[in-house]
Design a protein around this nucleic acid. Structure first.
Length: 403
DNA sequence: GCTGCCGGGAT
DNA sequence: ATCCCGGCAGC
């Protein structure tokens, strides 16, 4: 991270570095050469695909027959002397059109490239040996200075669900390769994802999954070990919400109580009301318990997340109240529950066992009670900070002197 | 003011 | 994942 890797700027004119072929002396000669090739293939097969190498070559020729020493970046004009005969223009146009319709561009057809440095090689591959034979300087479709129309990705290709996004990614990639610029970070969306704790009377909103999980694990579930089960459990106690980056209402200033209608909250995942004790059922339902899913049509849309949450508290672990509030197992009737879910959502067989502590401690859930035990700071002193436990050093809950 | 520690940022 | 710190809240 410290020292950036030395990057070798790929010359625009030599993305491959090699592949030097003697070009046709003139544009006319080149086009004629290509026309002959096209005519030859016409007799053999009417399949347009046969023309691809020749057409590519034609495009290439239109580029490489222009005077090479000409500066690349700024000039986009094509010398008139090279485009005098109408037939030449027609051939160029035909080549471009067929190329366009065929979407031969390997950038489009090739699978998504993970390594951008491999992209040029792939592009060259598509042109095949024919391109080499007919001559090209290797930058046929890249040169911004030539007057040839660059094939644009056909719309039909973008319809394919598997097709990579043709525009932005391609442009970025090419920019990166050509101009050696670091990939621009994705624009920050105006909608920010946040995670709301669905634990009763909590409603804490955090901006990271890790944070909300840690919050739930330490504050509500009250056990930091048991990685497997607790990790699954945490998934049920928070909900992903979308916060519009409205300057009037910054997300960090969200009140503990959930707003009456979260801006873009598509519905709490609690609508499916999966039991925490059956993670497999939930896993089969979608990519994740926090996946944004629209409320089922006809299903009552809970206006408050905290309202819908308790309906899914199938079981609350007894050891979740780890401090100050002793675990008390009380089967609370839905009526007495302050956040009684809508009747349609609440399964009558699911009597949510709400720990009494929920009602008793109130603020208890929002912040861990101050520990009674001596902590590392007190035991070792600030001068022996290196002897503190890691958590204490990081100003976290002490792990050495647990309460 | 001291202390514990939560939440988030930086690396 | 690890490290660090601002800031909040209890004492």
């Amino acid at each position: 991270m410290g020292t950036p890797l030395p990057k070798t700027r790929l010359g625009k004119r030599s993305p491959m570095g090699a592949l030097v072929i003697a070009p046709c002396p003139t544009m006319e000669a080149c086009v004629n050469c290509c026309k002959r090739a096209v005519e030859k293939h016409k007799h053999v097969d009417n399949e347009v695909s046969v023309y691809i190498p020749q057409l590519l070559a034609m495009l290439a020729a239109s580029a490489h027959t222009t005077p090479d020493p000409r500066p690349v970046s700024s000039n986009i004009d094509v010398p008139k002397s090279y485009r005098s005969p109408e037939s030449v223009d027609m051939d160029e146009m035909m080549a471009a059109m067929v190329l366009t319709s065929l979407s031969c561009s390997p950038i489009i057809q090739s699978p998504p490239q993970r390594d951008s440095t491999t992209a040029p090689a792939c592009r060259m591959e598509c042109s095949g040996g024919e391109l080499s034979d007919s001559g090209s300087s290797g930058y046929w479709s890249w040169d911004r200075g030539n007057g040839s129309p660059v094939p644009s990705p056909p719309i039909a290709e973008t319809d394919s669900p598997l097709a990579p996004p043709p525009d932005e990614g391609l442009d970025m990639e090419m920019e990166q390769v050509l101009f050696d610029e670091p990939a621009p970070r994705k624009r920050k969306n105006s909608v920010k994802v946040a995670y709301r704790c669905l634990w009763p009377n909590c409603g804490k909103v955090l901006t990271s999954v890790v944070g909300i999980k840690r919050h739930i694990r330490t504050l509500h579930l009250g056990h930091s070990s048991e990685p497997e089960q607790s990790r699954r459990e945490e998934d049920f106690y928070y909900s992903e919400i979308l916060l519009e980056m409205d300057p009037i209402a910054p997300p960090t200033a969200l009140p503990a109580a959930p707003p009456a209608a979260p801006p873009a909250n598509p519905g709490a995942p609690w609508a499916s009301c999966a039991s925490p004790s059956s993670p497999t059922q939930q896993a089969a339902a979608g990519p994740g318990p926090r996946a944004l899913q629209p409320a089922a049509p006809g299903a009552p849309q809970p206006s408050l997340l905290s309202q819908s949450a308790p309906s899914c508290f199938w079981q609350v672990r007894s050891e979740h109240s780890y401090q100050a509030c002793p675990p008390v197992q009380v089967i609370a009737s839905p009526v007495s529950c302050p956040w009684t879910p809508p009747a349609a959502v609440l399964n009558t067989t699911q009597v949510a066992p709400v720990p009494q502590s929920f009602h008793q401690r109130g603020h208890c859930a929002s912040r861990r009670a101050r520990g009674e035990a001596k902590k590392c700071r007190k035991v070792y002193g600030i001068e022996h900070r290196d002897q503190w436990c890691t958590a204490c050093r990081w100003k976290k809950a002490c792990q050495r002197f647990l309460d």
